[in-house]
């Protein structure tokens, strides 16, 4: 318990540095420290699958973020700070935290999970699927629809990135169509 509190405080400090840093590059690297601390937390929480995934994904995410920001303008924007919006946002987040404190009283106590559905998975996972890794048997067998939806979401996001980043596109064909119909080129 104390260990998780220490890790979470470390993550909160890292995210404060990431939010308030002047330079975008140091901000991105602070997010990286938060992610690696998160993977250690997953490992201590008895989730080695998630820990492996998180640590690998964090490396790729860092590469992508640095790739996106390193050659561009990486100074923070300091002028015209809107203090009213900042203060009101902080007040609303205080209210949010107060309500979440009320809601958290109904959550199961830390260290004592409910496990109504998972009990069945743990008991019958090996007989029904033959896999020793119960997490994989849930991901690919009991809840395969989730994984199928995940594949679709990943495919769509990559498609979106391709379409957004493509420089030349289908512009020539579009201009030809416009000329044929008679619409001026620049709308």
């Amino acid at each position: 318990m104390v260990l998780f509190v220490v890790l979470l405080v470390f993550m909160i400090i890292g995210s404060i540095i990431a939010i308030e840093a002047r330079n975008l590059l140091s901000s991105v690297i602070s997010v990286g420290t938060v992610g690696f601390a998160l993977s250690i937390a997953f490992l201590l929480l008895g989730a080695p699958d998630i820990a492996i995934t998180q640590i690998v994904v964090e490396v790729i995410a860092l590469i992508i973020l640095i790739r996106g920001t390193i050659s561009l303008d990486n100074t923070a924007i300091e002028k015209h700070r809107d203090t009213f919006a900042m203060v009101s946002a902080l007040v609303f987040f205080g209210i949010f935290l107060a309500f979440s404190y009320v809601a958290l009283k109904d959550m199961p106590e830390f260290g004592k999970p409910l496990m109504k559905v998972s009990q069945g998975y743990l008991q019958r996972g090996l007989q029904r699927t033959g896999a020793a890794n119960i997490v994989m048997s849930i991901v690919l067998d009991f809840r395969g629809y989730d994984t199928l939806g995940e594949a679709t979401v990943l495919f769509t996001s990559i498609l979106g990135a391709f379409v957004v980043l493509r420089k030349r596109g289908r512009k020539k064909k579009e201009e030809r169509d416009r000329a044929r119909v008679g619409i001026p080129g620049d709308l």
Partner: peptide, 17 residues
């Protein structure tokens, strides 16, 4: 054992992220 169901859901959620 710890609860395997949230782990299975988070595994997909990380890659989607």
């Amino acid at each position: 054992s710890v609860d395997p169901l949230p782990q299975a859901l988070v595994l997909t959620s990380i890659v989607i992220g």
